[in-house]
Simulated scan of single mutants.
Amino acid sequence: MTTSGQPPVQLVDVHKTYGHGENAVEALAGVTVTFPAGTFTAVMGPSGSGKSTLLHCAAGLDEPTAGLVTLVGSALTGLTELELTELRRGRVGFVFQAFNLLPALTVRENVGLPAVLAGRRVDRDRVDQVLERVGLTSRAGHRPGELSGGQQQRVAIARALAGRAEVVFADEPTGALDSTTAREVLGLLRELTRDGQTVVMVTHDPVAACYADRVLFLVDGRLVEQVDAPTADVVAGHLARLAGRGAPEAVRL
């Protein structure tokens, strides 16, 4: 776990620019934000506001143009790709809309994969426990192609649980799911924080966002507002208002 009192994820004045000269696009324009341990944060904003870029920079999947990102106690600046991979492998989990499961492996093997990649012995009892927790015990020997979309997403969450990831990044995790299955998946993400894990989720869905402790709103690469204990109606109202406003003032959260 991270050093006591140190947030698992922190961004300080982070900028990200794609392209050069007249073709340059500033996806993040000085973002400062902290994600405390054991919290569930949703990141929202209009299309093109920089939501996924923020998540990718926070997770070390993309390198900021400027600014500092600290992930589970390590500053990411200057780390090699191998060092980044090793850091993420042992302490960070991912839940994406595309599931990212290996089709040749069974459910149980996919859930145990982070331990294998990290060179650790797979804790089979732990794998069985998390499969029971996500309701997939009877599917443990099946391969992803034999599962529904919702079941595949639950495998991805079980993988994060089994690896005891300190931080779980989720990018539109319910985008391909029906409403009933989406609620089940969001409930599982909510449960992760009971174990002290930190969840950062990008979503466009106000209903999904209301499962979080707080919602951060991005506009034109800037964090402009925060809503605590969100409801779907309040979130939808903020999104509608932000979609029509002019250049925003950035805030530090």
Rank of each mutant, 00 (worst) to 15 (best):
A232E: 10
A66H: 11
V122N: 08
D178M: 04
R183D: 13
R190C: 11
N110L: 01
F94I: 00
V127N: 10
S47F: 05
G93I: 03
T85N: 15
V215K: 00
G78I: 09
L76T: 00
E225V: 02
A160V: 15
E26S: 10
H142M: 12
Y18W: 02
M1K: 05
L117I: 14
S47T: 02
R154C: 13
A59Q: 04
L223R: 03
V235R: 05
H142P: 11
G175M: 05
Q10M: 05
D171Q: 04
F35A: 05
L54P: 04
V199H: 10
V234S: 07
F35L: 07
L105V: 11
D233N: 07
R89Y: 05
S74V: 14
R159W: 14
L113N: 11
L102W: 12
P36T: 03
T106R: 11
S179M: 03
F169Y: 11
G60A: 03
T77Q: 15
R133H: 15
E225C: 06
R241C: 06
G60W: 10
L223F: 01
T80I: 10
S49A: 10
V111Y: 15
R183Y: 01
D13H: 13
A176D: 11
I157E: 03
T180H: 12
D171L: 07
E172M: 00
G187S: 12
A158R: 10
A27Y: 05
D195Y: 01
L68Q: 15
G5T: 09
V111N: 05
A58F: 01
H204N: 01
Q153M: 08
V14I: 10
G141K: 03
T181Q: 00
G135Q: 14
R194G: 06
V134H: 13
T137D: 08
T39W: 09
T181S: 00
L61N: 08
A140L: 02
H15T: 04
V107F: 07
R91G: 01
A232M: 02
L84F: 12
L11M: 12
R126I: 05
A160H: 15
R241W: 10
E63A: 14
A58H: 08
N110A: 06
E166G: 00
T203P: 01
A24V: 14
F35H: 03
